[in-house]
Structure formats: structure tokens, C-alpha cells
């Protein structure tokens, strides 16, 4: 069984650009605020039907008889 290792270091000089293709940390799927838009919408819908507060995640988002 091979184990997985991640090694990272700052070494090379002379490159300042953040590339669009960069396998950078920000581009990793784990760094998305909402990994799945449908799941996020369903969670917000559930909370809105049980709690007085809602909103702040963006514009739109429909109303519903449940709240």
C-alpha cells in the first residue's frame, strides 16, 4: 500500500504570477464556499423554514409558504 505524501516549500525565485491554471490551494475543490450548490440551497431552505433569520448568501433565493 502506497502512502500519500504532500511536500511543499518555498524555494525558487523570480516568479510572481499566480497562474490561472495554478494547482494552487485556492483552486482546490475543498476551498469552495459551497461544494455543491444544490446541497447549499437545500440546507438554507431547511434553516429558513425553522428559524427567523435568513439571507446573506447572495441575491435571489425564492420565498416559500414554509416561512
Amino acid at each position: 500500500m502506497k502512502i500519500f505524501c504532500l511536500l511543499s516549500v518555498l524555494v525558487l525565485g523570480g516568479c510572481a504570477n499566480v497562474q490561472p491554471w495554478e494547482r494552487g490551494y485556492l483552486a482546490k475543490p475543498e476551498m469552495a464556499f459551497d461544494p455543491n450548490p444544490a446541497t447549499a440551497a437545500q440546507m438554507q431552505h431547511m434553516y429558513a423554514s425553522k428559524e427567523a433569520a435568513s439571507g446573506g448568501y447572495g441575491v435571489g433565493g425564492g420565498g416559500c409558504g414554509c416561512n
Binding site: 502506497k2 502512502i3 500519500f4 505524501c5 504532500l6 511536500l7 511543499s8 516549500v9 518555498l10 524555494v11 525558487l12 525565485g13 523570480g14 516568479c15 510572481a16 504570477n17 494547482r23 494552487g24 490551494y25
Partner: peptide, 15 residues
């Protein structure tokens, strides 16, 4: 200026 470098690899041991 420096930039971030990263190596990911599969290995038998961390040593």
C-alpha cells in the same frame, strides 16, 4: 520574490 512549489507523491514510507 518567491512562489509556492508543491510536490505530491506516493511512497512506501515517509522517510
Amino acid at each position: 520574490m518567491s512562489c509556492r512549489n508543491e510536490i505530491q507523491l506516493f511512497s512506501d514510507s515517509s522517510e
